[in-house]
Nucleic acid binder design. Structure first.
Length: 638
RNA sequence: GCCGGUGUAGCUCAGUGGUAGAGCAUACGACUCAUAAUCGUACUGUCCGGAGUUCAACUCUCCGCACCGGCACCA
């Protein structure tokens, strides 16, 4: 049996899963289910990434030990996967022993490859700043420009992977295997990134404690990304090179959102090259979801209310909508009105109603599956379309064109509706025409049986519901059972039931919709319990914040985000470069009163010196901090 | 600033060097087995703008505009 191995990324446990995660896992699930029905030996992996500084910090913020925090968060993911009918074989947690042992073996092998080296950062270090200062910025005395304190000479070790060595091989691999990275734009981006040259990557952190120590130097913790990537092998039992590992590595598909392709398409393959291991076959990146045209954003409270929409339309409709409406690989705009339209037009009207009308006719006139004794007009056309649909579907699934795949299946669904209409089967209830009626209805039922298999990867529950009403065994629905027309057993009692996609009027919609979710706008202000996050008042006092007025503003040549500003501090005027060009035009800034950090060391940005910094809220959008009413220029702010 | 992509009917998108297509939505008609479902017909388009190549361009080339993405950059 041919093996098929599909993975999703492992998601950071610090943070609730959102619709983007759902999209990835649904897509991966469809692939997994499709290949299972095709007779492949499938292994489907998803999981969570529980290590690293971010998780550690979130745990601290909640006053929990890291492991306890992870134990609390991991179920939020498994619950969602259950809700979405995700059929993964393993939910990997990176705190599991199997994974840890695998990572150690992986790192040991990587080190043995000779492509890991230790490098030392050394330089003048200021403890309060937690920062190194380059020689060229310092005077003879070696004092911290911020604190005016003597700097220490510090050396810090880090382990690096010689990624740069693999630049050429990666480049030619991507060029020679057009399907290695799915969707042209991602591929081009990577190639141009490669052309710019690769730098070696750090694979360890010595300042982080929550993670897996390097086997060859336990004072260092494996960098989370390096550790996380190896999960695709550790989950299979890489440590012991188990049978499962032998069977399934290399992965057929690494499914992910487009933002993390670089790790998967460059660093991961390069490390595998170093280990002389085969590379994954496809890196498949899908686009991002937006909601009503806006980027999803926790801080601005823009999110897709999966709970409500699934409660209203059902999980299969949700899965269907995501994969049918958006061209896979491109960004997609999630709109409830579109989900509603798809639900009614495609699911309720086309498919649900088809099942209902055919079963209604059979129930009324035959009770059981009739014998197809009397071929006639349109029969061959329908059968030809069956073969055609199967063929197309194969090709489309191979290129991850889920939207077109569903469109193709629906072409068949519509054809059957048309068949019923064209033959006017309901008029054939006379003794001489009855055999023809039976034949047409047999074909209708057979088409529905075929459809139940075609849609099974996308809408597993719906497939089962259809099969239940046809009184077919729910499990045995492989693609081999629909390869040829006529597999539906004759004389089977049918079991017409409730509509599988009942229409949803506005009233029901409102009833089912939960009250408007409390704007998750302000992210929960978690009590900062951790002493390590606190600074002393004297630390705070080190900041010199002053009221200032913008007196001139212009763009910085050759920079997208930078504006060069002249600000008046009363006692003096200064030039400040601010990264706000995407959010403010120069004209609107002039005359504005702003808050400036005045005792920041100067830097040169894009060749322009900046002698301070503007305070601004920098979430998804950037908003300048201003004063409620104007105050004299130069007033201290604290 | 550099690199790449996109711009086609109200909406979501296909598409080919020879005067443009699908689904949804809309209108009208047919039918009445069915979840006010189904089926048929019709409708609208300066195929982003401009120039060029060509007998002929929406499709090729160049320039421009808009939007999106990658890189640089965000003290």
């Amino acid at each position: 049996m041919t093996a098929f191995y599909v993975t999703t990324p492992i998601y950071y446990v610090n943070g609730e899963p959102h619709a983007g995660h759902a999209y990835t896992n649904i897509a991966a699930d469809v692939l997994a289910r499709y290949h299972r029905l095709k007779g492949y030996d499938v292994f489907f992996l998803t999981g969570v990434d529980e290590h690293g500084a971010n998780v550690h910090k979130s745990a601290e913020n909640e006053g929990l030990a890291p492991q306890a925090y992870c134990d609390k968060m991991a179920p939020t993911f498994t619950k969602l996967w259950q809700r979405l009918n995700i059929s993964h074989d393993i939910f990997l947690r990176t705190t599991s022993e199997m994974h840890k042992r695998g990572v150690r073996k992986f790192l040991t092998a990587l080190e043995a490859s000779g492509d890991v080296y230790k490098d030392t950062y050394e330089g003048h270090y200021c403890r309060p700043c937690e920062q190194f200062f380059p020689e060229k910025e310092l005077t003879e005395e070696k004092i911290c420009p911020v604190h005016q304190l003597p700097l220490e000479w510090v050396e810090e070790e880090n382990y690096f992977f010689r990624l740069s060595k693999y630049q050429e091989r990666l480049s030619s691999h991507i060029r020679e295997n057009p399907m290695f990275i799915h969707l042209e734009p991602r591929r081009n981006e990577l190639l141009s990134f490669l052309e710019a040259g690769l730098e070696d990557v750090s694979i360890s952190r010595s300042s982080v404690s929550w993670g897996i120590p390097l086997p060859f130097d336990p004072r260092h913790i494996a960098y989370v990304w390096i550790e996380a990537l190896s999960n695709y092998m550790t989950a299979l039992g890489y440590e012991t090179e188990s049978e499962r590992y032998q069977t399934f590595w290399p992965a057929d598909v690494h499914m992910m959102a487009k933002d993390i392709t670089r790790f998967h398409a460059l660093i991961w393959p390069a490390m595998l090259m170093a280990l002389n291991l085969p590379l994954p076959k496809h890196i498949v990146a899908h686009g991002w979801l937006t909601k009503d045209g806006e980027a999803l954003s926790k801080t601005r409270g823009i999110f897709i209310d999966m709970d409500t929409d699934i409660a209203t339309y059902g999980v299969d409709a949700f899965r269907y909508y995501l994969l049918r409406e958006f061209s896979f690989g491109n960004d997609g705009d999630y709109r409830l009105s579109r989900l509603n339209a798809r639900y009614h037009a495609d699911l309720a009207n086309d498919l649900g109603n088809l099942l209902n009308r055919v079963l209604g006719l059979v129930g009324k006139h035959f009770k059981r599956v009739p014998e197809p004794t009397t071929p006639g007009e349109f029969d061959d056309e329908v059968k030809a379309m069956h073969r055609e649909t199967l063929q197309k579907l194969d090709a489309l699934m191979e290129t991850f064109a889920f939207d077109t795949a569903l469109e193709t299946i629906w072409g068949f669904v519509r054809r059957i509706n048309r068949y019923i209409q064209q033959t006017e089967v309901w008029t054939l209830n006379t003794p001489e025409k009855r055999p023809r009626m039976g034949t047409i209805l047999y074909n209708g039922l057979e088409a529905l049986r075929i459809i139940s298999v075609l849609i099974a990867p996308f809408m597993p529950d719906t497939a089962d519901k259809i099969r239940q009403q046809l009184n077919l065994p729910v499990g045995a629905n492989g693609f081999d059972t629909i390869a040829t027309w006529g597999g539906l057993p004759k004389n089977l009692a049918i079991a017409r039931g409730e509509p599988i996609f009942p229409r949803i009027d506005k009233k029901t919609r409102q009833k089912k919709a939960s009250p408007p979710p409390s704007p998750k706008a302000a992210p929960k202000q978690k009590a900062e319990k951790s002493p390590s996050n606190l600074i002393s008042f004297s630390d705070f006092q080190k900041l010199d914040l002053r009221a200032a007025k913008v007196i001139a503003a212009e763009p910085v040549e050759g920079a997208d985000r930078l504006l060069k500003l002249q600000v008046d501090l009363g006692a003096e005027k200064r030039q400040v470069v601010a990264g706000i060009a995407a959010h403010y035009t120069p004209e609107t800034l002039i005359g504005k009163q702003v808050i400036v950090v005045t005792n920041l060391e100067p830097v040169t940005l894009r060749g322009v010196e900046s002698q301070g910094m503007l305070l601004a809220a920098s979430g998804d959008s950037v908003v300048l901090a201003t004063l409620e009413t104007e105050v004299p220029l130069g007033t201290q702010i604290r």
